[in-house]
């Protein structure tokens, strides 16, 4: 018998089947708790959906709907329209959420439509930089040279050949009233950013870099550490954008070299101990340096 009783205080209940140490589930719980119980969620297909809603059970304590991989944004638009007719749109938060596959790739067009309509919806992307749920294939958010199951490095391949899409900037270009990026390395920052976002009326985009334990090939207890390192190397800028201005989370001290981050992942293992890898790391360092300069992270 356990001495202390779990108050089961969060809006996502335990008993879900996410991997031990999952950065996405941790982040999703923080997001929803920050939104509060008067929230309706439209969720994309993906880990977050399958691990929390095995019929006939659900981890979610707020109204929650899953339709398809690519459409949580349009489903959220429909929810908002219905709430408007019911006169409830001012008191209920509409939250659309999905992973990077849904957000960067297959659902991209529908997100653009939602933003264009200037609807008062918070869209949260849990960016694991890979199609986690289907077994770690490359997405539009996969970083350069990453080893995924569809970008295996070999004699004629260094892994993913492309630099990831910058959804944050795309959101800004759409005129979203609040755009932010953070990582699962900063739980308090996730909560603050959600709360900040909800003070704005209009389209809002929050992207959270969330560690995928098996997809990245890191140890179970490393989600937070990896989130911090992604920021401290400049690989993943942490910022907010609102009222036409960037508000950046500065890197404490001197930025770390990218290998400090890369060497911890199995997905970048092929970059170490060979000449080609050295060149590749240089290129990744270059990307990080550009981020540091562009977002003024130092």
């Amino acid at each position: 018998m356990q001495k202390y009783k779990n108050p089961n205080q969060h809006l996502i209940a335990p008993g879900h089947t996410a991997c031990p140490g999952c950065g996405q589930l941790m982040s999703a719980r923080l997001v929803l708790d920050a939104c509060g119980s008067k929230t309706i969620i439209a969720n994309a297909t993906g880990c977050l959906e399958v691990t929390t809603t095995k019929y006939p059970t659900s981890s979610w304590k707020v109204p929650w709907v899953h339709s398809l991989f690519e459409n949580p944004s349009a489903v959220a638009s429909g929810i908002l329209a219905a709430l408007k007719q019911k006169g409830l749109d001012k008191e209920i938060t509409v939250l659309a959420q999905g992973g990077d596959g849904s957000t960067f790739d297959i659902g991209f067009g529908l997100i653009s439509g939602m933003w264009e309509r200037k609807e008062n919806i918070l869209y949260v992307c849990y960016n694991t930089e890979v199609y986690s749920n289907t077994g770690y294939q490359a997405s539009g958010a996969t970083p350069l040279d990453a080893n995924t199951t569809t970008t295996p490095p070999d004699k004629k391949s260094m892994g993913n050949a492309f630099i990831r899409k910058n959804m944050g900037e795309i959101a800004i270009a759409h005129g979203c009233v609040y755009v932010a990026q953070t990582t699962c390395g900063y739980p308090a920052d996730i909560i603050n950013k959600v709360k900040k976002a909800l003070t704005f009326t209009g389209p809002k985009y929050l992207e959270i870099l969330t560690t995928c334990i098996p997809g990245w090939g890191v140890e179970n207890e490393m989600a937070v550490q990896m989130g911090k390192l992604a920021h401290k190397t400049g690989i993943y800028p942490v910022f907010e954008y609102y009222d036409d201005e960037y508000h950046v989370m500065k890197i404490p001290g001197e930025p770390l070299k990218v290998d400090e981050y890369l060497k911890l992942h199995k997905r970048f293992k092929h970059l170490f101990g060979n000449e080609r890898g050295k060149e590749a790391i240089k290129q990744i360092q270059n990307i990080a340096d550009k981020n540091i300069e562009k977002y003024n992270l130092k």
Partner: peptide
Amino acid sequence: GFEYINTESEFAAASLLLGASATGVRT
């Protein structure tokens, strides 16, 4: 008196109705 929403594709139009209908209104 309805909400009239121009979408960016039929796929979005149908998805939007799915969301609205799931919220308990006629679509």
